[in-house]
Design a protein around this nucleic acid. Structure first.
Lengths: 324, 324
DNA sequence: CTGAAAGCGCTAACAA
DNA sequence: TTGTTAGCGCTTTCAG
């Protein structure tokens, strides 16, 4: 691989001049610019970003650390982030933790070591990873879930209100005994959605906690079906678990919405093509990504500003699964 | 941020010794090891990977460049890649091109500049990006789609055979006039699946080309419905387009599979929960990712080996949408 | 087993 | 406007 010195020699100028040309300084003689560019082309020179980053002590990469690459919630959010990042001159590298705190710690460590320009993270709950980030000077924005014990810029939806609306919707449809399937304790979305659900009930809550995966939803629903206090409706706190729950109901021949009402948090791709179509509480995912990216841009520009929390609204989309 | 010299001073040793400790050299006195580790902890020292990469002239990052982060095909593949990468000591950064050749070129340039250890790419068809990769010394593995004019390690499924099987399945179910919705010309999956379809037909093919997105499938199906030679079945060359086609049929009140048979290439999440459930040709996505990652590990170890092409089988999953 | 010193490739003061 | 020079933080010879 040719270096900047090879180009300089070829063009008969100094390395500094090559650097200036390549970085768009306009204090360079047009004739030299031409010679340099020719040399660059002839040698197939490509600047070494590692060396540049070291010298400048900064990079133009953002790490976006998400907890499940298979979850459409995140893919839509990532698009919003990418669009803003690109405009602001950053590239986005995606890190998938698969809800595994150990992987999260690995990626956070990598982001810090690699001197990334910023981090956007949907925490899977690792206190250690959160601590590393907060103690470092790297700009951070938390999305979807609050960072454990972290005072950083945050973009979330109104989880509690969304869950309350969903539960009230089931009550309004005449369901009597409404259960809730939610995620792990300590993950803010799981806890807040649970709180919204419980707040809407007058009677005793009936709660199953599991992970946020499809299989977890399936298992949770199976346990509810065989429970002595079998519910007649369920509010499920994320999209993948909702799909799992629906599959469980289909396999057990339970009629939805007749025997069992169902509302899920998060949009589900093709929720309208599934039968019965699924009532969901949707989040403005793309907008959430855009907002997070904008906060990160601002944070990089003004590291000392006070952290902001942006709460976006969630919206109920009534469909067949909750209407009897 | 403390540097290795700060740690050295704190521990009363040289920077070289700190480096040795941190890199697991066993030729260091245990007492020094202890002192160094204490100093590291006290200062919260974190090695600067940028400096290390520059010095070593190599990194431990793989760029995985995919064309659509919202496509479940890729998310499953990425999981397979990640699992192998992690075991081999590499981290994976994901780059999403959204089927945009310009974005693909940007990410390829970044991967080269950042001196990534390797690249796994599902090309969106940019000849320029392919050229950059092939001219560089960076190890490359192509997945899903062949790299334009590239002699590199490649992992694909047997697109032609899969498409032929799907089409024959529709013929066997009694459909008379079978159309094909496929992707852009020049993208190998689009062309090979088209060839498999055409090869199975005895009559005249009826083809609509569009992009590989959901909206494209919708529009293509709409045009087929209003065509004078309206088909009674369609083979759709990828998953997202299949969903779009299905939505179009649902909105137009066309009975599937009665009035219109449907088979899609690629698995679709919850294909079994959609009504009618979708007949698909599925690929071993996770395995494909694993295989690509293994090829990359080998390629990094032996850059001069002859490029290999691995073809994995595709498999028909008959469901309701093609059975009348 | 440990330390001194060089240098990876680049950019940015500073000087000319 | 251009070149010289120093040095970003680390690893790795080479001496000792």
């Amino acid at each position: 691989m040719p270096t900047i010195y090879d180009v300089a020699r070829e063009a008969g100028v100094s390395a500094a001049t090559v650097s200036r040309v390549l970085n768009g300084a306009r204090t360079v003689d047009p004739a030299m610019v031409a010679r340099v560019l020719t040399a660059v082309r002839e040698l197939g020179y490509r600047p070494n970003a590692v060396a540049r980053n070291l010298r400048r002590s900064r990079t133009t990469l953002w790490a976006v650390i998400i907890s499940d690459i298979g979850n459409p919630f995140f893919t839509a959010t990532v698009r919003g982030i990418e669009d803003v990042a690109q405009q602001a001159g950053y590239s986005v590298v995606l890190c998938n933790t698969d809800e595994d705190p150990a992987k999260e710690e690995t990626y956070v460590a990598a982001a810090l070591s690699e001197q990334m320009a910023g981090v956007i993270i949907a925490s899977s709950g690792s206190v250690k990873a959160a601590k590393s980030l907060l103690e470092s000077p790297i700009p951070v924005v938390a999305i979807d879930r609050e960072l454990p014990r972290g005072a950083v810029d945050t973009v979330v939806v109104d989880n509690e209100a969304g869950a309350r609306t969903a539960t009230e919707h089931l009550l309004g449809a005449g369901y009597q005994r409404i259960a809730c399937i939610t995620g792990p304790e300590g993950v803010s979305t799981a806890d807040l959605r649970l709180r919204g659900y419980a707040g809407a009930l007058s009677g005793q809550p009936l709660v199953v906690r599991t992970d946020f995966r499809e299989q977890g939803g399936y298992d949770a629903m199976a346990s509810l079906l065989s429970s002595p206090e079998r519910p007649d409706a369920v509010f499920v706190a994320n999209n993948l678990m909702t799909v799992g729950a629906l599959r469980c109901l289909a396999e057990h021949g339970v009629d939805v919405p007749g025997e069992m009402g169902l509302v899920g948090f998060d949009e589900i791709p093709w929720a309208d093509l599934v039968r019965p179509s699924l009532t969901t509480v949707t989040q403005p995912t793309y907008e959430l990504g855009r907002m997070a990216a904008r906060l990160l841009v601002d944070r990089i520009a003004t590291p000392s500003a006070k952290p902001a929390t942006v709460v976006l609204p969630a919206e109920l989309h009534p469909r067949q699964s909750s209407t009897r």
